[in-house]
Amino acid sequence: MSGFLTLLKRDLLLAVREGGALGTALGFYLIVVTLMPLGLGPDLNLLTRIAPGVLWVALLLAALLSLPRLFEADHDDGSLDVLALGGLPLELMAASKALAHWLSTGIPLALMAPVLGILLNLEARAYPLVIATMLAGTPAISFLGSIGAALTLKTRRGGLLLALLVLPFYVPTLIFGISAISAALLAPDGFLASFLILTAISLVAMVLGPVAAAAALRQHMH
């Protein structure tokens, strides 16, 4: 367990010191959300209606942008092989990487969403819902994304391929994230069912993601 925490701390420190990745993701999130009213027209009623969906889809794309780097740097400089030789199982190592991605990218993106909600005239009562569903849903994005990141290591066209592989896996998270918000806005008691399923999907992803990512990473080790 201590190895897991050490690795997590290292990755978080790297993320903070390098800094650029998070800034790029946040900037991308902002620009995608800004483009929406430009494409759809400035009708505030329309924007209010579609705001949660736009925020969620843009969040998926922004998180996707930072995924290729998940294992790449460590693979290129050889530290991945060193880590694999250490006592920590590859599954836990992948889990630590994905967790670090969630803490350093997923949470900031989720917290940025309400700020962007202002641009989209998001309803006041939808703010806590957007934050809650995104905090519950973003672990799935990081952990399922880690599968794609491990698979596309050493591929040509890595980033584009990653999007094609990973976005279908994000469908359940997107659907339940949005349905929790819209259920809560329509009838307050409908929120919990969707929210619990959203959380369950994140938990499943936390188990499945590291196992599959480790299986993919293992093919690179010799």
Binding site: P168, F169, V171, P172, I175, F176, S179, I197, I201, V204
Partner: peptide, 9 residues
Amino acid sequence: IIKFSVDWW
């Protein structure tokens, strides 16, 4: 899971 989520949706 996708199938189930889409049915629900």
